[in-house]
Each structure stands twice: as structure tokens, then as C-alpha cells.
Nucleic acid binder design. Structure first.
Lengths: 168, 168
DNA sequence: TGCTAGTTGAAAATGATTTTCAAATTCATT
DNA sequence: AATGAATTTGAAAATCATTTTCAACTAGCA
């Protein structure tokens, strides 16, 4: 499905990159894993992205930097990144797991067009407050939340108006 | 994964059941499909549930009522129910699509324990308002939203305290 | 009743995700 | 720098939920 974005975002600064690598390698050390060239390449590629990537999409990007890195390694590294909080899963309900990096980003949410796949980010501090409040009420130690709004974007509505009934 | 519930809910009244059937069969007629025994059984079974069911879980329940109904039919009927708004998908990020019935229920959301799978429902009118507001801002025609909070429930936290480091 | 379009369900296909395993690599220790 | 134990890698195979196929069956209109 096509993925367009409305908002924009700056590439990571050198410091940001370094800090993220630090978090990652500290995590690896903590759980007794090793620092490898592949993991580093995958992390760097991931941080340079801005969309919500499927494992396969990230794999394709990684392959451009190092054609010898396999899908499996990307898959496994993405799990490690999720473990240490650098990546988080975003479910768009289309049967594919997507990840986005969480580094230096404000808490945000997504609105997705169910026709063309356009996704828009929006920010809402209320959601964070609500999360905390509900967690407290039910004695949960809250770790994360997901909030997505689904609908039809303006463009797709216009297209529909032109051919109102599809008989195919 | 285990699924416990904290809140409770009454079984559907005869009227509620009838109304849902009406909505369903009206929908079938509208899109030129037929009213069958199987579809009726599946709808009734679904309405009697209260949890977030995977297709397979619903299939098992349906099979108790009519052992001749196949998985495929349950799968297809669930899609039809989602089409006419009687069912809606809930993603718990565990790789399985789940549905819950929407009939006569207030808009609600879920908090899920990532350890034991416990899910709690909560209600929050703010979320609906937010949905509308964001949709308007980006010119989306909003159809639905999902909001889930993830965390660790009280019980699981207590269990962890007892054996703080797992070395297996 | 007869007909047509839709339905059913077993089995096969699909497609994303996950595991397996032998060869290669990391890194703490010599 | 060399050693060796533990981990990593990546291709291939396995898994598993979901979706499609297709031949036999059924609903519901004329």
C-alpha cells in the first residue's frame, strides 16, 4: 500500500545517532550480546528513516548499504531495538508489523487513510495524561500505548465522488 | 495467551439479538447476499460472547452449536459482520486478529497486560472528541479509531518481585 | 418446481514471521 | 597476536494465521 506523509522531519544529528548507538550497545552488553557490524548498520539505517517501516522495507534499505546482510538479521535486530525502546511497533491493521524509531521524538499518534494508506502524525498531550490516569486506576505499570484513527482522506473522498458506484 | 477479564457484562436480551440479526440481514440484502442458517448461527454465537475473539476461538464456539460449520465460513462471516459494523477488529499486537461485537456497547478501549494477557476495558469520552477534532483538522472522514494501553498488571508485578532475575 | 446466483467447507495457496543449523565472527583471556 | 567459548549470521525450512480455490450444495426468486 502506498505510504505518503504529510509532516516532515529532520535527519538525526551526529550526537543523536551516537546517543542511540550508545543506548543500543549498552543494552546488548546488559543482556550478554555482541556488538556487530551488521547490528550497527541496521541501527543507523533505521534511525535515518522516518516512516513506519515493515521489516521487509527496512531490509531493502539496509541491503543498499551492505548487500550481504540478510532479512533474518534485520528481523532479529528490530526485535532488539524494540526491547531497548529505540523502536516501537505500530499496527496499521493491514497484516504487516511496522516499526518506527522512538529516538528524540515527541509522543505522537497516527491517522491512517484506509483507502490509500496515507498516514498523518498528530500530537496530543491529553493521550499521555489519560494513559497515566487509567494505568493508575487499574494498578497497571504502563509501558506504552497505541492510538490510531482510521478514515478516508480528502483526496480519496474526491476520487470517490467522481465515480460514485463501482460495479467491477 | 491467557485472557482474563475484570469487567463484566450481561448477555444480550432477546430484543438486542433480534435487532442485531435485523441489521445483519438488512446488510446482506443490500449487498446481494443470502440469509443462511450458518450465518445466523455464527452471528448468535458471536453476540453471546464478550471477549475479544480470534477467528479460531469463535470457530470453536460455533462448532459446539453446529459441528458442520467450517472455519472458512466463520472467517468470512466475521468479515461481513465487520462490514456492517456489528463487529470490530481489535489489535493486541500478538499476531492474531481479534474481533469484538459492537452491539449496544459504549465506545471503550483496552488496557492489556503484556505478561499474562489480561485485558481491561475502560471508557473515555475524551477520546471520541479527540478523534473528531483531529479528523477535522486534517480533512479526514473519520470511521473508527483504536486506543490501547500496554503495561504490566498488579499480579504480574508481584510475581516478578518474588523471582527478580530469571536466569533460564 | 426450476433456475440462477450465491454459499459452503475441505484443501491448497499465500505471505508474514520465526526457527534451524552449519559456518563465520566476536571478544575475553592468554 | 593467538585461543577458544559463546554468540551471530543468513539461507533455507518450518510455522502459523489468513485467504483463495473449486466442486458440490442451497437459498430464494420467477
Amino acid at each position: 500500500m502506498l505510504q505518503r506523509r504529510i509532516d516532515d522531519h529532520a535527519p538525526p544529528t551526529r550526537e543523536a545517532m551516537r546517543e542511540a548507538q550508545d543506548i543500543f550497545f549498552r543494552h546488548l552488553k546488559r543482556v550478554g550480546l555482541k556488538h556487530t557490524e551488521q547490528r550497527d548498520t541496521i541501527l543507523r539505517t533505521f534511525l535515518e528513516t522516518r516512516d513506519h517501516l515493515s521489516t521487509d522495507q527496512l531490509f531493502r534499505l539496509v541491503r543498499k548499504k551492505d548487500a550481504k546482510i540478510g532479512f533474518t538479521t534485520v528481523y532479529r535486530t528490530l526485535k532488539l531495538l524494540a526491547e531497548c525502546g529505540l523502536a516501537s511497533e505500530v499496527a496499521f491493521h493491514d497484516g504487516v508489523a511496522r516499526y518506527e524509531h522512538q529516538f528524540n521524538r515527541r509522543s505522537h499518534h497516527h491517522m491512517v487513510c484506509t483507502d490509500c494508506g496515507l498516514s498523518v502524525e498528530f500530537f496530543s498531550p491529553e493521550v499521555g495524561k489519560l494513559e497515566e490516569e487509567i494505568g493508575h486506576r487499574y494498578h497497571f505499570e504502563v509501558t506504552r500505548h497505541t492510538f490510531q484513527i482510521y478514515g478516508i482522506c480528502e483526496d480519496c473522498r474526491k476520487k470517490k465522488d467522481k465515480k460514485p458506484v463501482s460495479l467491477t
